[in-house]
Simulated assay, not measured.
Amino acid sequence: MDSQLFKNAKIYLLDKIIENGWMLVDEHGKILEIGEGERASVSNEVSVDVKGMSIIPGLIDVHIHGGNGYSFMDGSYESLAEISSFHSKHGTTSFLATTSTASKEKIIKALNSASESYEKGMPGADLIGVHLEGPFINEKRSGAQEKSDIRLSSKEEIEEYLKASNHLIKLVTLAPEVENGFEAVKYFKDQGVTVSIGHSDANFQEVLEATKLGATHTTHHFNGMSPLHHREPGVAGAGMALKELTTEIIADGIHVHPEMVKLLLDVKGVWNTCAITDAVFCAGLPDGEYERVIVTKGQVYLKDWSTLAGSTLTMIQSLKNVISFTGYSLLDVLPSYTMVPARQAKVEHIKGSLEIGKDADFLIVDDDLTLYSTFVNGIEVYQMTK
């Protein structure tokens, strides 16, 4: 691949916008230089005129189960490749493939496929690891997770999962208050895994104890957790009150009311809020009845209509929603979609911002955040059909 010079662009850095900028990407897909004003390309560079549109960092989703009819729990390279391609068309440049509560054998199959897929590489968004959601959760807050497969954690089972994934597990969702839960928090933390409190009925004191042991994250905040009450803050209140915790948010306007999305951003700030999709296999599919779920107007429910079962949200739509819900600017809110998930997935040294030496993962968008192109490691993996 030749070096590429992207010019005549509005470039979004961490703390400022370069209005008339250019960015040079080397032949290895790394950002080599960023500048302002005019710069002519040289003989070994391909010149790309962005025509005044914006270059923003690629969006990173640390909680994604599937899309376009495919699920990570299918346990195949084909499924992960389809998920990668689908979400790259909607602004995602990196993701953590996320498991669901299931039998040990099914989870191990999915983890094996993640390890294989990581080595092969993805056609769209970069697979940067795994988010292990369950099975070590609280049945009382299980949501759409399979109750029959919920179980207590053990060091032996955790080690099996770490080995099956070739240590690609970057994030784990668990309930610390159940038996063996606190031990699991400490063990995962000691293995370098970001520990998230989710599908949990913990009280404030239990959450506080979990943070002392190393928990630093909450899963789809407000959903699948003990709610905020003025006499017992629960997980929802603890996540808002404790600076040690970064809170995920599904900003589809369904899982969390728009005003509560704004409240969370106002209280936690963009550097402690992590935007996610929680997208499931039916993201991108038309309304209808599928396996265990029904999709109507983009909302996913179990067939008894009792419980939301993931989302059909995409990251670019989430970004538009949060700007609309909060009144924040694009520059203000971008960290929740870029550097924060990169930090929580432990890849902030190579992804999450447009900086020299980092992977050239970026989007070309217009002022309305219409997506024109997605680049991953300097390669265009999606281009809007003209």
Rank of each mutant, 00 (worst) to 15 (best):
F95K: 04
S88Y: 09
N377R: 15
V195T: 06
A238V: 07
H221E: 02
L369V: 02
V48H: 10
S115E: 07
S306M: 11
F204M: 13
E116A: 09
L32Y: 13
V48Q: 06
A202F: 08
I294A: 13
R39C: 07
C282W: 14
T326W: 12
S79A: 15
K163I: 11
M23N: 00
V261S: 04
I108T: 10
G253L: 05
S148A: 14
V261T: 09
Y161K: 00
L245E: 01
D368H: 15
E380A: 13
G284C: 12
A275F: 15
T307S: 15
P135W: 04
V185N: 04
D49K: 09
A102T: 02
V381T: 02
A175M: 11
L174T: 05
L13Q: 10
F136A: 00
C274R: 07
A175D: 08
T374E: 07
N44G: 13
E19S: 13
L265R: 03
T307G: 08
G198R: 07
L132T: 00
T370G: 08
G129I: 00
G310N: 11
S94W: 08
S88I: 08
G129Q: 06
G239Q: 05
G75A: 07
D61A: 06
N180P: 05
M73N: 01
H255M: 06
K297W: 13
I169F: 01
V293H: 02
N377H: 14
W22R: 03
P341W: 01
H220Y: 11
Y372V: 04
K30C: 07
D15V: 04
L162R: 04
A97M: 04
E36Y: 13
H229D: 09
E259G: 05
A9L: 02
L132N: 01
I107W: 07
S100E: 11
L59G: 03
G214N: 08
A164Q: 03
V50C: 04
E33K: 13
L14V: 05
V207M: 10
G378C: 07
M1G: 12
V207C: 09
